[in-house]
């Protein structure tokens, strides 16, 4: 942990802390929404510790609270979380060695920690950003959910605070440096278009995976340091 502290400079630590605070509020709204929908107090808290993926948790609670089958809720949640497979394939190197680190680091893999890691150039900083964001969010998210579950509807409307706009803005700010690369920009534009066009017709999660066709465009594009040994990764 000490090496993480050393590597994180103040501005990166502040950015991560800001995201943690914002997510704590979203967590509180999650806890409040789940309990006020008539679900038991422990369910949002157990979900947050065991699943630790905001969108899938909201989806799960939404389905179960409206009388849906828990099996359907699990399937919908898994579909939404399938994106973690390509995430892990990309940033797997930040986890480090040792089985305990690997297991804990694996569980801390979420959109924000992946995005913070990707936004860093250098290896040591990538690792520090990933772990600091993952640990910070795990603590803040779970605390927020517990507070929300107990406090009830007091904090259920995070839209009034504009926090629903904060999440995409956070991710956008973190991927912008990567988008300065033309191949990545082409791929992302196509991916976003595919996701948006298919989203109205497909269950949530699937449009995100379909967005990966955008990578093919980047692959077909000219690459100056092309080694051309291997085919495209099939995601």
């Amino acid at each position: 942990m000490r090496s993480i502290r050393r590597t994180l400079d103040r501005s990166l630590a502040r950015d991560i802390a800001l995201v943690c605070v914002a997510d704590a509020f979203v967590g509180a709204s999650f806890g409040a929404i789940a309990v006020s929908a008539g679900l038991p107090l422990w369910l949002p808290m157990l979900l947050s510790v065991v699943v630790f993926a905001g969108a899938a948790q909201f989806m799960f609670v939404g389905i179960v609270a409206s009388g849906g089958n828990p099996v359907a809720a699990v399937v919908a949640g898994l579909l939404l979380n399938a994106r973690h497979l390509p995430f892990g394939f990309t940033i797997g190197d930040v986890l480090g060695r040792g089985w305990l680190r690997r297991i804990v680091g694996t569980h801390l893999m979420i959109d924000e920690s992946v995005a913070f890691a990707l936004a860093q150039r250098e290896g040591e900083r990538r690792r520090a950003a990933y772990w600091a964001c993952g640990i910070g969010l795990f603590i803040c998210w779970n605390l927020g959910v517990a507070v929300g579950a107990f406090a009830g509807t007091a904090i259920s409307d995070t839209d009034a605070l504009g926090l629903d706009a904060a999440f995409p803005a956070v991710l956008l700010a973190l991927i912008l440096p990567s988008l300065r690369d033309p191949a990545a920009r082409r791929a992302a534009l196509l991916g976003v278009a595919v996701a948006l066009v298919t989203a109205p017709f497909l269950p949530a999660g699937l449009p995100l995976l379909l967005a990966l066709v955008g990578v093919l465009v980047a692959g077909l594009g000219r690459d100056d340091q092309a080694t051309r040994r291997e085919p495209e990764p099939a995601s």
Partner: peptide
């Protein structure tokens, strides 16, 4: 490099759909 692009594409799609 393509893997890095794949993660960026996924995050971009997430930005687009959640926005």
């Amino acid at each position: 490099k393509l893997l890095g692009v794949a993660a960026v594409v996924l995050l971009a799609a997430l930005v687009g759909t959640t926005a």
